[in-house]
Computed example of a mutant assay.
Amino acid sequence: MSNHVEALPGFFADLVRCETRLYNALNDRLRERHGIVTSQFEALRYLRDHPGSRVADLAAEFAIGIGATSKSVDRLEKQGWAARQPNPSDRRSSLLALTDNGSQLVEAAEKTVAEALTELIGNALDSSSVSAAAQALSQLRSALERNQIGTPTG
């Protein structure tokens, strides 16, 4: 077995543990400063950057099921951060939009996230390491998405 293949289980373990720790740290920071968690921030940011998205679009982007995504959108609506609007081209679906409160929240939270990522990643890795890791993860993500690996069925 080549060193490349032998290194993959350790790479996977490190990748998952780093993701979990970063996600948890962002959750704590966002909850403390803005009353939201990372998944809510990610959904709000996606809706800001992709106006007129549907629940299915969010589900595809984050590789989560439609039911879980719809419940997440319900919670965003209940908080007054997002709204469903009728889809003029398909009565069976709704288009999602940020409310003014949602837009203000995501803008403020984005500053918190940038600050936290600088602290958590930028202070641990130099710019060339960040660039190399970003490139590697982008390639891996593209391959997984292109081959629809890990896409939920429901």
Rank of each mutant, 00 (worst) to 15 (best):
A114W: 00
T69R: 04
L95G: 04
S138F: 06
D49E: 13
I64S: 10
A63F: 12
A60S: 01
R91K: 13
R33S: 11
Q135C: 03
A63K: 13
H50V: 02
M1I: 03
A114E: 09
L15N: 00
T112Q: 08
A114C: 11
R92P: 03
A68N: 05
R75M: 01
D90T: 04
D126L: 11
G65Q: 07
G10Q: 03
A60I: 01
Q40S: 15
T153F: 09
L96C: 02
G150L: 12
G65R: 09
L15R: 00
N27P: 06
P9W: 02
P51A: 12
V5R: 09
S53W: 11
A132P: 01
A97V: 04
S128W: 14
A132I: 12
E32N: 05
E32F: 13
A13S: 11
F11E: 00
A132R: 11
S93P: 00
R75T: 09
D100P: 09
I36G: 15
N27E: 10
P86R: 04
A25E: 12
R48M: 13
F41H: 08
T153K: 15
L8S: 04
E77K: 06
R91V: 10
G154I: 03
N123C: 08
Y46E: 11
R84K: 02
A132V: 14
S72F: 05
V113S: 00
V37H: 11
E107A: 01
R45D: 14
C18L: 08
R54L: 05
F12Q: 04
L22Y: 14
V16T: 06
A114G: 06
A134I: 00
